[in-house]
Write a protein that binds this DNA or RNA. Sequence first.
DNA 1: CCTAACCCCTGCTTGC
DNA 2: TGCAAGCAGGGGTTAG
Length: 276
Amino acid sequence: MPELPEVETVRLGLLKHLPGHRITDVDIRLEKILRRSDGDAAIFRSALMGQCIADIRRRGKYLLFEMENTQWVLFHLGMTGKLYVKPAGSPIEKHTHIAFHLDNGSMLHFNDVRQFGSVALRCRNPFNVPPLSLLGPEPLEPEFNGNYLFQTSQNHRVAIKTLLLNQHIVAGLGNIYVDEALFAAGVRPRKRSDRITRREANVLTEAIKVILKEAILAGGSTVRDYRNAAGAEGHFQLTHKVYGRGNQPCKTCGTTLQKVVVGGRSSVYCPACQKS
DNA sequence: CCTAACCCCTGCTTGC
DNA sequence: TGCAAGCAGGGGTTAG
């Protein structure tokens, strides 16, 4: 479940190794992992052969390789997707669907057990077309603020958790960080969005920003599958107050944490600390 | 326009 | 010990 902090951690790791390097070959083992790509596997390979990686960017949970020739490669890690930088000659392990060979001999492996992730070639700037153009604001940018969240909440009648998971409203939050932010803000996940107060929207927005920043500093959360570009685990899971802790005591007050389903997602909250 | 349900997929966990 | 059902869930599509 790579969310914004995990994707950002992968990006920072890849930045150390990839920009300025040329792709010398592309080995596509599972064609169907290419989704919404400009062209088939053969086109993907030939378009990128010999091309130099200029920059690595992120939008929501998407990672973007900006190539020197203005092509782009769009990655989504889905639930279990990983991008590994590997030394020269590393074997291609199970569930590695694409291996990029680089001009310094190292390799970049895209590995995804559940195959919910995707990789796509884009011949033009992808920011102004779907799916990126449909994304809401970046949660760490100033345009995501209490006023925005309050106004948006008033215009929908879903559970606040469902609203925050909606990438069209704010880009990059997933189950972990929404549950943690709702706990920090003292708001229950099933609270209807149009009943959120202006003050709650302010508190929630700040909680989201603080938690995301802390999680990035901790290298993300490794619950089961997540690893960074070097194959190392994150540490933020040690700080989780509620995610994955259903029926365990609240770390703040000792009350047994409640586990419920909201919008089809398992959700954990503290009935004492989250009164609203 | 909106929301809920379903689908994709594999491997770990749980129950018999 | 073995087997199968249950579960995890981001995002796209379909149904209502």
